[in-house]
Computed example of a mutant assay.
Amino acid sequence: MRPRRLRRTQWLAGSAVALALLCAGAATVATARGGGSEPAAVSAPAPRTPSADSADAGFAREMAVHHQQAVEMSFVVRDRTTDEDVRRLAYDIANTQANQRGMLLGWLDLWELPKTAPDGQEPMAWMSGHEDHGGPEGHGGGTAGFEARDGALMPGMATRTEMRQLGAAEGRKAEVLFLQLMTDHHQGGVVMAEGCAGLCAVPAEKRLAQGMVEAQRSELDLMADMLAERGSAPRP
């Protein structure tokens, strides 16, 4: 009888875990769709999902692209320097932004929306009407008057030329260029995340955006210190 009781206990435990995971998954979907914690009435309609031209969808699409370049830059500098502080920062950025990118693309799948902007829509169109934030013109500044150029599709993104320069640099030169490029990148990312925090409607996405603002501002301070240690500074 003992083995049978053990098997039954294990089966019940496994069923409980499966049920918990199912409930957690349902809660995650409800949150991403904009639902709250209160149970919906039986007759309530299904939660509305963002439209393709909404701030929620625009931020998810464009920040996923923005994050992808940060991941690429982090992997490049990892192989161009032996400095442990820079490599550790690059590792943290790559992991954090790769995970966030997965969340953003997952929401687009959940909402059954395309991962590319509608035909004819300009970059950053979803931020129309949001108060512009100041910053170094041409680098991580605000979105007013922003024009995509040489592969830099959004504020703060490095151009193809700059990415080639980073790939060719070594040692201290690679460290300084990475920190300068990533400073610009974070400044542009903060502008975009602040835009979502103000314009997006999905609570989970707004919370993610606000978390990005806080984390990237902290890393901006760290990178300024690291540049100073190397006798340099963020680009004007």
Score class of each variant (00 low, 15 high):
Leu6Pro: 05
Ala117Gln: 07
Pro155Ile: 12
Met127Leu: 15
Val77Arg: 01
Glu122Trp: 07
Ala98Ile: 07
Ala158Glu: 12
His139Glu: 01
Ala46Trp: 14
Met226Ile: 02
His139Phe: 08
Ser15Ala: 15
Ala27Phe: 10
Glu219Gln: 05
Leu19Ser: 11
Gly211Glu: 04
Ser37Lys: 10
Gly231Ala: 02
Ala13Lys: 04
Gly35Lys: 06
Leu22Tyr: 10
Ala94Gly: 12
Leu108Thr: 04
Gly120Tyr: 02
Cys23Gln: 13
Arg149Thr: 13
Gly231Lys: 02
His185Ala: 11
Glu84Met: 11
Asp92Cys: 11
Asp85Ser: 15
Arg80Gln: 05
Pro203Phe: 12
Trp111Leu: 04
Met1Thr: 14
Met163Arg: 06
Gly167Asn: 03
Arg78Val: 06
Pro45Asp: 12
Pro236Met: 00
Ala20Asn: 07
Gly171Arg: 00
Gly167His: 02
Trp11Tyr: 11
Arg149Ile: 10
Leu179Met: 07
Asp79Leu: 06
Lys173Phe: 06
Ala41Met: 12
Pro123Lys: 00
Gly25Tyr: 09
Pro39Met: 09
Gly106His: 06
Ser232Glu: 01
Ala144Pro: 03
Ile93Glu: 09
Gly167Asp: 02
Met212Thr: 12
Gly36Thr: 07
Ala44Gln: 14
Glu219Leu: 03
Ser54Pro: 05
Ala60Arg: 00
Ser15Arg: 11
Met1Gly: 15
His186Glu: 10
Lys115Phe: 07
His130Lys: 09
Gly35Trp: 08
Glu175Ser: 05
Ser43Ile: 14
Gln210Glu: 15
Thr116Glu: 14
Gly151Thr: 11
His67Ile: 02
Trp107Ser: 05
Leu199Phe: 08
Glu122Lys: 09
Val42Ile: 14
Val77Phe: 02
Leu108Glu: 06
Val42Asn: 12
Val65His: 00
Arg5Ile: 09
Gly135Cys: 01
Arg33Pro: 03
Leu166Ala: 01
Gly167Lys: 01
Glu131Trp: 05
Gly120Val: 01
Leu227Thr: 00
Ala64Thr: 03
Val42His: 14
Ala169Ile: 00
Thr82Gln: 13
Ala46Asn: 13
Leu177Thr: 06
Ala52Ile: 04
Ser232Gln: 00
Val190Phe: 05
Gly129Pro: 04
Gln121Val: 14
Arg78Pro: 04
Arg235Asp: 12
Gln69Thr: 02
Gln187Phe: 10
Arg160Gln: 15
Glu147Ile: 09
Ala64Glu: 03
Gly142Lys: 02
Glu162Lys: 07
Ala168Pro: 02
His185Asp: 14
Cys200Thr: 10
Ala44Phe: 11
Gln100Met: 04
Val190Leu: 04
Thr159Ile: 09
Glu229Leu: 03
Arg88Gln: 15
Met1Tyr: 13
Pro3Asp: 13
Met103Glu: 13
Trp11Asn: 12
Leu199His: 07
Ala174Met: 01
Gln180Met: 11
His186Asp: 11
Gly171Thr: 04
Thr159His: 10
Pro114Lys: 04
Asp150Glu: 10
Ala144Gly: 05
Asn99Ser: 14
Leu6Ser: 10
Gly36Met: 06
Arg235Ala: 14
Gly58Phe: 01
Thr81Lys: 02
Ala98Tyr: 10
Phe146Ala: 03
Ala60Thr: 02
Met1Arg: 11
Ala117Thr: 04
Thr82Tyr: 07
Met226Asn: 02
Pro47Val: 09
Gln180His: 12
